Amino acid sequence: MSLTDLPLLGMLRNRMQWHQARQALLAENVANADMPGFRPRDLAEPSRSSAGLAAPLGAAIGGDGLARTDTRHIGLSAESGPNADPRRFKGFEVRPSGNGVNLEEEMMKAGDNQSDYQLVASLYQKSLDALKIAVGKR
């Protein structure tokens, strides 16, 4: 087993690959901002259970973790109900052409994704540096 096969480094590599794939998808959303009928897409967060980490609290409770126990409670989603707007697509307004891309939101996601990638990459590099010091190669 080599030093780069450690579970921590594997998780960091998987996270960097996820951020790379998400960046490509966000760039595709921006590139198709004027295409009629285009719907923006995004990647779901990688599962923590496959990485050996504890599942999020909502999954541990069951589903969303919240339940509407009384009809007088405020609804959990804005997809249906008296205040629902059929022109909205996952929080964005859909243009008359059917395109749901909001450039400002996509650029904010891309910037956040880039900074998260840089954080994971620096953690990966620092972990490798610490391993080199521990082995005595530095």
Score class of each variant (00 low, 15 high):
36 P>W: 01
51 A>S: 09
25 L>R: 09
127 S>H: 08
92 F>N: 15
90 K>P: 00
10 G>V: 04
123 L>M: 15
60 A>W: 00
104 E>C: 03
80 S>K: 11
45 E>T: 09
48 R>W: 03
99 N>R: 08
89 F>E: 01
30 V>K: 01
1 M>N: 09
87 R>F: 05
55 A>N: 09
93 E>L: 15
99 N>P: 00
19 H>C: 09
10 G>S: 15
58 G>S: 14
59 A>C: 03
20 Q>W: 11
39 R>F: 01
122 S>T: 13
99 N>I: 10
5 D>G: 09
4 T>H: 10
50 S>I: 09
84 A>D: 04
98 G>Q: 05
86 P>M: 07
87 R>W: 07
19 H>N: 10
125 Q>N: 15
3 L>H: 07
56 P>I: 01
128 L>Q: 08
54 A>L: 13
86 P>D: 07
80 S>V: 15
103 L>W: 00
92 F>H: 15
73 H>G: 02
67 A>C: 03
9 L>W: 08
100 G>Q: 02
19 H>V: 04
13 R>F: 04
53 L>E: 14
97 S>F: 00
22 R>F: 06
18 W>C: 03
112 D>I: 07
10 G>H: 09
105 E>V: 05
28 E>R: 12
120 V>T: 15
33 A>V: 00
137 K>S: 13
4 T>I: 13
91 G>W: 02
34 D>F: 00
28 E>N: 09
88 R>E: 10
35 M>V: 15
26 L>K: 01
43 L>M: 05
87 R>N: 02
133 I>R: 13
15 R>K: 12
95 R>N: 02
34 D>P: 00
28 E>V: 04
61 I>T: 07
124 Y>V: 04
98 G>T: 01
80 S>P: 05
91 G>K: 04
79 E>M: 09
9 L>Y: 10
125 Q>T: 13
45 E>V: 07
16 M>F: 04
81 G>I: 06
83 N>W: 12
115 S>P: 06
9 L>M: 13
18 W>F: 08
37 G>L: 14
79 E>F: 12
117 Y>M: 07
9 L>P: 01
18 W>I: 04
98 G>S: 03
130 A>M: 14
109 K>I: 02
83 N>Y: 11
39 R>I: 05
91 G>I: 02
90 K>D: 08
81 G>Q: 06
61 I>Y: 04
125 Q>F: 06
86 P>F: 12
82 P>C: 03
56 P>G: 01
50 S>A: 15
72 R>T: 14
41 R>E: 12
19 H>Q: 15
23 Q>N: 09
110 A>S: 14
75 G>K: 08
108 M>R: 08
47 S>W: 03
92 F>D: 07
60 A>G: 06
38 F>Y: 14
24 A>I: 07
48 R>Y: 06
2 S>K: 09
2 S>L: 08
82 P>Y: 12
37 G>K: 08
78 A>C: 04
65 G>Q: 10
80 S>D: 12
42 D>P: 03
87 R>G: 03
54 A>R: 13
13 R>H: 07
98 G>V: 01
26 L>I: 15
20 Q>C: 03
100 G>R: 01
101 V>G: 06
88 R>K: 13
77 S>E: 06
115 S>H: 10
50 S>T: 12
88 R>W: 11
48 R>S: 11
51 A>E: 11
28 E>W: 00
1 M>Y: 10
121 A>L: 13
115 S>L: 14
42 D>A: 15
8 L>H: 06
87 R>S: 06
25 L>H: 02
69 T>I: 11
